[in-house]
Structure formats: structure tokens, C-alpha cells
Nucleic acid binder design. Structure first.
Lengths: 263, 263
DNA sequence: GCCTAGGTCCCGTTG
DNA sequence: CAACGGGGCCTAGGC
């Protein structure tokens, strides 16, 4: 079984392993995306090392020479190799070996049987955009500081201090310095500790300084620590921030149509 | 173009989109691994949100309903959905939509063209081992018995006893018999029970016999049982075993360069 | 090049 | 179950 169109596409079902060797070479020299499904054994040696015995898996070699191997279950690949790896392929003794080398790391895959092999040139120039990230939360706070509290004025973004970075630095309505740490997920103890480290040094010169964790939720142990360290929490979800940005860009946003419960 | 074998495998090249709908249903109801290559648009809404316009990508739905979508470049998927998601598929207006739902997260993929669709039942029961297998761990103990304790002397490997197999049998520095059970993962209650079965019979003739579980960690209930049965635990990770084997093979290993904290 | 911080992180362990 | 720490994390940005 075979389909072809000028080196842009090829597919075979239950091919012989030596035939696969030819197809792989054609795929690699055409910088096509290669898909192989078959029974293989894998070993990896590099930063770590791993082994797995024979089993049926999907191997993908992309046009940038990245390699990904998936087992029939689970969201993560069992083994992989980054873009730019050097890929070699050889057949012998009823085994087809595909090896990938990258910065001292070696991934070896040996197939004893291949069910399906195919390569194809894929076109994908679309731009990927992501919303409701921590970045969007910071942006939304600058666009609409009242979501933190009435009268809050953000001053700088990503301020560098001795102990690291402060997400947002500003002033409250009474002129007190406010340091904000933004998290898109539930804030954990570590996040409070990080904020505390920023604030504790500053409190020597400025005892009225406030520290606020801004996040959709906070773990109970983090909340305890918050109270102990005299820091605060403001609830804010990445989704509402994304909404603020998009509606503001269309000039639709007022404080009234911002449902306070969504925060 | 079509290949089939009793619902275990199907493949079509340049199928019509409504035909794809049928194949997808067959794949999902058979819990097969589904691979689709085609031109699609994707949007995701959940913890964050993302959008991407039309482009040619590879979509994989695994037998546990995890979903992975790869662009022709890069090691990471552009979008995905974890195991256990609910997958729906519908065709209309020259568009084939595949939607995946999981804990409030939605992934929508809409194909306007499909180059290749295939599903297959994949068998992969192999155990994945990082750094070292249990076999490697035993090897490391034979190469360097001091990682168990000073003066330990391993004698036999896989000794057969009435109740099964002992991983390693040896003597400690005082001449006491030592029985070792090696586990590459956290030791559980069952592992302690297994070791206890070996040791209990031997204790009648030899009350000074010691039983040691060797593993990277031990569950708390297993630890309790260990104390009750007068057995012991020694911490040893596959990672350090891998280091021992590699360095010993190069003749570099001494007790000094073996960081005790790594065990 | 190093280092830092973020991620739809994922994943396993612990309380 | 929540919560926490680690990863071959990967990846983007700053210096």
C-alpha cells in the first residue's frame, strides 16, 4: 500500500524494515514530518538515562529534527529529543535503529516491527496566541488598578530588588508603598515566603509598606503564613483579567460592567 | 486507500470529513489510538485560553482519551488535554469538529481538510525505568556492597527459598546472614510482607538473620510493619546506582566520591 | 553564555 | 483530597 506526491507525502502499512530505512532517509532529506508506529525498544542517555523494553509506540520526527515518542497512554512522551538533533538510521539483523544525538544526549530507538510509516510536508504558519496568563493579569492591573483596591496606583512592573523581582510596585490611596506578587494559580506557601522576603527588607526603612498576593485562590497554609507575616491577599482570576484587556481594547469597559464577583 | 483488521486497525488517506466522523467514532468506541493529520483551527479554554488559526497539524487521541496536538516544529504540543477527557465529534458545513472536555477545560479542534486518518490498538505493557532497573540496582550492590552498609558481603543473587526468591543473600560485618529485597520504587506494605515470608521461615534455624528492604523510599504503613517484623530499610535510588555502575566501569569510584547524601 | 521566572507545566508523594 | 516539590522539566527574557 503506497501513496505518493513528489516527495511531499508517502505512506506504507506493514512495510519491511529495510524499506522503512529508505523511507526514513527520504523523509529526513526532504525535512518532512515522519510518523512511525511500531514495536520498539528505547534507551536514552544524557542528563539522565532511561530504558524501556519492547512495546508498540508512536514515533514522530518533526521537520526541525525534534523527536517525540508516545506510548498508547498518557499525555507525556516516554522519550524525546529537542529540535536540532542529528538523526541517523540503520537496518540490520531484523532491527531498524533510529538514533538521535543532541548536545551529548543520545536517544536510541530499535524497531522489530513497523505497522505504519508515513512522512509528509506540513504547512503551518499560523500564530499561536495565549490569554489569561500571569502576564495578562499584570497588564489588567495596570489598565484598571481598582481591581486591586480603590485608589491603588501601580508604578513599576518587574522591579528588580536585592532578593529578586517584584511583580508590581505601587502606592495605595493613603500613599503607602504596596508590593504585589501576582500568581495565576492558587498561591502557595512558597509564594508568600517569596513576597515576605521582598517586604521584610523594605520594612526596616518603611514600616508602613504593604505586601499583597494577587491570585485566584490561596492555600490554607499560605493563608496562615500571610496573617503571621502581616501580608494580604486579593482574589483575582486570570480570566477576568483577560476580559478586562479585551473589553478595554474595544473601549467597552466601565467599572459598572465589571462583575465584582468574577474577580 | 484502506486497510483493516477487525476494528483493530484502520487507515485512510484523503478521506472525506464525514467519513472521518465514522472512523473517529469507531476508534473511540474501540479505545484505539487515533492519529489524524490535517488542516485545523484550535481553541482552548480552561486554566488559560489559546487560539490558533488554520494550519496542518498532527492530532493524537490515545486510548485513555488524552489528546495531543503537534505542529510541524517544536518538541512541545501546541495544545493538549489530559487522560480521562470526554471526547465528542461532529461534522457539518464542511468542518469536522473534535471537542474534548476535562474538569472545566474545553479543547476544540476544527478540521477543514484531513490528509490522513488512522486508528490502531497498541500493546505496550513494558516497564519504563529511569536511570536504573531493579536488575541494575542489584548489580550496583554487588559492585559496591558498602552502599548497603560497611562490611556487607553479598553472596548469591536470586537465591531460591521455599517461599520464593531472595534478591540478594549475604553476610554483614559480624557474620550475620542478611537477606535483601530490592525495589526500584517506593517500598509498599506488600514488599515488606514478601520479605517477611522469606525471613520468618529462616529465623527458626537462625534467629540472628536480618532482612533489609532496599529502595529509594518506603511508605509509612510499610515502615510500621517493618518495625513490627524486626526488618530494616536502606535507602538507595536508581540514580545513585546508575552512577555507581558507570563510574565503576571507568574504575573511578571510591567511597569518597560517593556522596552519601545522594543515596 | 548563564540565570531567573512562568507554565493549561505534568507527576508522584505526603498529610 | 489538598498541597508541595521535582523534572532529561521546557521556554522565553534579561544580562
Amino acid at each position: 500500500m503506497l501513496a505518493e506526491c513528489m516527495g511531499r507525502f508517502k505512506l506504507e502499512v506493514n512495510p519491511s524494515l529495510d524499506r522503512c530505512g529508505e523511507i526514513i532517509h527520504e523523509a529526513l532529506s526532504n525535512k518532512a514530518v515522519l510518523i512511525i508506529v511500531g514495536n520498539c525498544i528505547i534507551d536514552y542517555n544524557g542528563r539522565a538515562s532511561s530504558k524501556i523494553g519492547f512495546g508498540e509506540r508512536i514515533l514522530i520526527v518533526k521537520s526541525d529534527s525534534s523527536v517525540i515518542i508516545h506510548r498508547p497512554r498518557g499525555i507525556k512522551p516516554v522519550n524525546w529529543q529537542p529540535s536540532g538533533s542529528i538523526i541517523k538510521c540503520e537496518y540490520g539483523r531484523n532491527i531498524l535503529k533510529i538514533s538521535s544525538y543532541f548536545k551529548g544526549e543520545v536517544l536510541n530507538v530499535a524497531f522489530k516491527n513497523i505497522v505504519l510509516i508515513s512522512f509528509m510536508k506540513l504547512e503551518d504558519e499560523a500564530e499561536f496566541s495565549m490569554y489569561a496568563t500571569e502576564e495578562d493579569m499584570k497588564k489588567a492591573i495596570f489598565m484598571n488598578p481598582n481591581i486591586i483596591e480603590r485608589g491603588f496606583i501601580p508604578i513599576t512592573d518587574e522591579k528588580h530588588v536585592s532578593s529578586g523581582f517584584i511583580d508590581i510596585y505601587g502606592k495605595d490611596s493613603k500613599g503607602n508603598t504596596v508590593v504585589i506578587e501576582v500568581k495565576k494559580d492558587m498561591a502557595l506557601k512558597d509564594d508568600v515566603i517569596q513576597l515576605y522576603r521582598y517586604v521584610e527588607g523594605m520594612r526596616k526603612n518603611n514600616p508602613s509598606i504593604r505586601g499583597i498576593i494577587v491570585s485566584p485562590s490561596i492555600s490554607s497554609s499560605a493563608k496562615h503564613l500571610l496573617v503571621k507575616t502581616n501580608l494580604e491577599h486579593v482574589k483575582l482570576t486570570p480570566k477576568i483579567c483577560s476580559k478586562i484587556i479585551h473589553e478595554a481594547e474595544r473601549g467597552k469597559l466601565t467599572l459598572d460592567n465589571l462583575n465584582i464577583n468574577d474577580r
